[in-house]
Amino acid sequence: MAMPDSADPAVVADPPALFVRLLGIADRVFGGGQIAMPAALRIAGGLLPAIIMIGVLAWGLALLFWYSIHSYDAFADQSGPLSPIEYATLLWAKGAGFYRTILIRTVLLSLLTTLAALVLAIPVATLIIRTRSNLLRITGLTLCLVPFLMGDIVRAFGWLILLGREGLYGWLSQSLGLGQRTLIGSALGIWLGSLQTIVPVAALILLPAVRRIDPDLEQAAATLGAARWRCFVLVNLPLMAPGLVSAGIVAFALTMTQYAIPDILGGGLLPFAANTIQNVFFTEGNIYLGSALAVVTLAVVLLTAMVFALGLGLLRRWRAGVQRRQAVEIAL
C-alpha cells in the first residue's frame, strides 16, 4: 500500500507480509484461542508446573521438620524413634548453653541491625522518591540495587579489605600511630557489614510507602504550625508504619539467617545460626540436630514477623480508640 506522504513520521511501515501470514496461520492452528477447554483445566495447567517446582522445596522443608522430631542413632547413622531430644539439645538440656548463646547473639545482632537499617533507609527512600533530579534518583536507586545484586561474597570481600588489618582501617589506625588495628572478628564488624546488606533492601521496600505520602501533607502540617521534626513524627512516621513493618520483617529475616557476613567478618569467632546449621550438617554430619536448628531458626523468624505485624495492628487500634474517645467527648 503506497502512502501519499512517506515523510510523515506518523506513517509506520507495514509489518512484513510473511509475519502477517504466519500470525494468521498460528491463529487458525490455535482456533483463535477459543479452544473448548474448561477454564478450571486451563488455570490448573498454568499453575501446576510452578506448584511442582516449589513442591521440591516444600518437600524438603517437610523432611527437615520430620528429621527434627526424631533422635539420631549415631552408631547406625540412621533415624531413631520420634523424640523431642534434638530440640532439648538446642534449647533446654544441660549443655544447650552453646546453642542458646548462638541463637541469642543472632537475634540480638539482627534486632540491632534491623533497627539501624530502618533509620538509615528512611532518608535514602525519601531522597529517591522526592528528588526532582532524575540523575539523583537513578544514582540513588543504582547505589541501592548494585550492593543488593552483587552478592554476599563480594559484599563481604569489600568489608574485609575495609575493616581488616591489611585494609583501610588497619592502614588508618597505623598512620595515626594506634598500631595496625582490625574490626574483623568483632560484633561491630558484623554489624557494619550486615547494614550494607540490609539498608538497600529496607530502602527498596520503603519506596512504595514513602511514595504514598502526599508532599502536600507535610506542607499542610507546616501551615498548621508543625515544625519539621514534629511533622515527621506525627505525619510521616505513622503513614510509613506499614512499610516500616514490612521492611523490618524482611530485614530481620535476612540478617537472622546470614551466613557469609558473620563467617567472614566475624573471623569464625562469632557464628550465627546459619553458620551453625552448616557446621552441624557438614562437620558433625548430624542432619537431625541440624534440621532442628533450621526449624528453630525458621520459627524465630516467623514469630518475629508475627510480633511485628501484631504490634502494628495493636498500635493502630489503640490510636483509633484514642481518637474516637476524643471525638465522643466533644459530642457530649
Partner: peptide, 24 residues
Amino acid sequence: AVLAFLTLGFAAPLAVSAVALLIV
C-alpha cells in the same frame, strides 16, 4: 493460598531452604 505457596522461597530463609533442598 496459591501465591503464598509459590513465594515459599521468600518465606523460608535461604539458609533453611538450602539444607531442605540438600536433603531432597
